[in-house]
Design a binder for these strands. Structure first.
Length: 566
RNA sequence: CGGGGCGUAGCGCAGCCUGGUAGCGCACCGGUUUUGGGAACCGGGGGCCAGCGGUUCGAAUCCGCUCGCCCCGACCA
């Protein structure tokens, strides 16, 4: 078996799962974000795929395999040829026809279904595939965690009514729970933003990990869990707040004080006493947003609020143009011709500080109504420590996660664009209601390693382990050792237990180190020394627990121990 | 796309500042001794110093450009 383990950590990897996959000889890098799967790595991939297939089939989905390459015409029909941007990798065939490598397959599957599904009798329908996807990520990183080419399970449901569509969604939600549970992962399903795929609601399945790229909030009571992009920001109302005298508006000199920290330190107040003004470029217009100094803007919420496509914090040039002041002194007073949106948390503030739209000047004692009237108050900030669960008002908990699965209720976005319809009982033409459901297979493997490793290497959950048992004969020249080893190997194989045999003629230390590194749940050491004492050694990778067994008893004990682990 | 780092043997790195025979550890091959947690000694093989161009008698080293990889940010199923 090609199993090139590395003693040293390659310099290119700084994520633990990436390092271990390279060191354990599971993957090799071919180009940025593009990997080869070696035998051990592919074995684990197949384990995840197998679990996915079983649970998808159990949930009533049918497996298909769609082309990787798809023609531009389909993507133009859905408008995503334009919308998707450079992440969609495009190429031409020899006849100069445009194609792309599929980053996801809504168009292709919808095309398939619109051709062959006519009647309500053929619905509901749920199709999935496990296939290589390509997305030309701006910045591939973290090994399999964010690759450009990656293996994904993508599934699509087709229903005739909202009720049925919600039932399909619910079944997938359950299937996903089963899949990640069987993979031995600690995860949460969280409410998520639907993003450019569109649709009405969606959940992400997050494996909890400190290095996760996504921030999530959850209610300790289990009432609520959401991606930070979407999490409602509800901050505690200060009780018995006395009416405050509105003090007189005053402009003060703040030489070269540009950041919230500088201004609040200079004025001797806290960041929470400031209202900061962030200028946002929204499609072709400019919007002023107001947030408490210690809060962070949530562009996803703002995008959803405004129903806009593109938005980003304005560049320096734009800020200077619209505020007529250098960056760092923007404020809402005197702004005309631009929409002003204030975050909800600022509404109860009074006598606050803002920029004065003039170099080295801020206003103090600014107040709503008298000095500033925003067009709208809305939740446009990122939830932060102290915010409350929208259901039970307990303080939210904050953690990080790796997004391994994402399910969307799409509605009719694609069936409308591509005219996927069916005839109902009354013979009327109706749009098919769709859902889509993705799982990052490689990412799931990486997430499993993030959650299951120690300083010596990987500790596979039994369900994902590439082999269940590792046989380590230590004395390759010893006939007795070798005979016993192959006897075990054949016996376990016949019992359906996957065995890896380390038949390299190397020193014991090397075998032990590699055994720890590749993380097979149960290690069986067969050495001449122990055999003289009439024993072989069994070691559980996860607990480090070892026990001696007589050579005759070992196969039985192995089977018993395997039942126990995990 | 912006900022930063790096590119020298399969892997990890030194050498570059201050130009003059390309090195170290691990891995690999042969030999001897070893043999239960990455052995010791002896002897070997292996390099377009990322590429292209320039400066120079002479470039891994100095200068310019290009490519690749990694990190941070912006961005994002």
């Amino acid at each position: 078996m090609l199993l090139p383990t590395l003693k040293e950590t390659p310099a290119e990897a700084d994520l633990i799962s990436h390092q271990l996959m390279l060191r354990a000889g599971m993957i090799r890098n071919l180009a940025a974000g593009i990997y080869c799967y070696l035998p051990l790595g592919y074995k684990v991939i197949r384990k995840v795929e197998h679990i996915i297939r079983e649970e998808m089939n159990r949930a009533g989905a049918q497996e298909v395999l769609l082309p990787v390459l798809s023609p531009a015409e389909l993507w133009q029909e859905s408008k995503r040829w334009e919308v998707y941007g450079p992440e969609l990798i495009r190429l031409k065939d020899r006849h100069q026809r445009d194609f792309c490598l599929g980053p996801t397959h809504e168009e292709v599957i919808t095309d398939l279904v619109r051709r062959d599904v006519r009647s309500y009798r053929e619905l509901p329908l749920n199709l999935y595939q496990i296939q290589t996807k390509f997305r030309d990520e701006i910045r591939p990183r973290f090994g399999l965690m964010r690759a450009r080419e990656f293996i994904m399970k993508d599934g699509y449901s087709f229903d005739g009514s909202e009720t049925e569509a919600e039932e399909s969604y619910r079944r997938m939600y359950e299937a996903y729970h089963n899949i990640f549970k069987r993979c031995g992962l600690d995860f949460r399903a969280v409410e998520a933003d639907t993003g450019p795929i569109g649709g009405s609601f969606s959940h992400e399945f997050m494996v909890l990990a400190d290095m996760g790229e996504d921030r999530i909030v959850s209610c300790p009571g289990g009432d609520y869990a959401a991606n930070i992009e979407r999490a409602h920001a509800i901050h505690p109302q200060e009780k018995n707040k006395l009416p405050i005298d509105l003090r007189e508006l005053e402009q003060v000199v703040t030489p070269d004080m540009k950041t919230v920290e500088e201004v609040s330190a200079f004025l001797g107040c806290t960041a929470g006493d400031l209202v900061k003004t962030l200028v946002v470029q929204v499609d072709n217009e400019v919007v002023f947003t107001l947030l408490r100094g210690d809060h962070e803007i949530n562009l996803t919420k703002l995008r959803n609020l405004l129903g806009s496509e593109q938005l980003a914090l304005a560049d320096e040039e734009t800020i200077v143009r619209v505020t007529e002041a250098p960056v760092g002194f923007a404020g809402p007073l005197g702004i005309k011709g631009y929409k002003i949106i204030a975050d909800l948390a600022t509404k109860e503030m009074s006598n606050f500080v803002t920029g004065a739209n003039k170099q080295d000047r801020h206003y103090i004692n600014v107040n709503w109504e008298r000095d500033v009237i925003p067009a709208q108050y809305a939740d446009i900030r990122v939830a932060s420590a102290g915010d409350l669960c929208p259901h039970c008002r307990k303080p939210l908990e904050f953690s990080r996660g790796i997004e391994v699965g994402h399910i969307f209720k799409l509605g009719t976005k694609y069936s409308q664009a591509l005219r996927a319809t069916y005839l109902d009982e009354q013979g009327r033409e109706q749009l098919i209601i769709m859902g889509c459901y993705g799982i990052g297979v490689g990412r799931t493997v990486a997430a499993a390693i993030e959650q299951n490793h120690d300083q010596y290497g990987i500790i596979w959950p039994k369900a994902l382990a590439p082999f269940k048992v590792l046989l380590l004969p230590l004395d390759m020249a010893d006939q007795e050792v070798m005979n016993l080893t192959s006897e075990y190997y054949d016996g376990l194989a016949q019992a359906g237990i996957e065995c890896l045999l380390d038949d390299r003629d190397v020193r014991p230390g090397i075998k032990f180190k590699d055994a720890d590194l590749i993380g097979i749940p149960l290690r069986v050491t067969i050495g001449a020394r122990d055999l003289k004492l009439g024993t072989v050694e069994l070691k559980i990778r996860k607990t480090g627990q070892t026990l001696k067994s007589s050579p005759e008893q070992a196969p039985t004990t192995i089977k018993q121990l395997l039942e126990q682990v995990d």
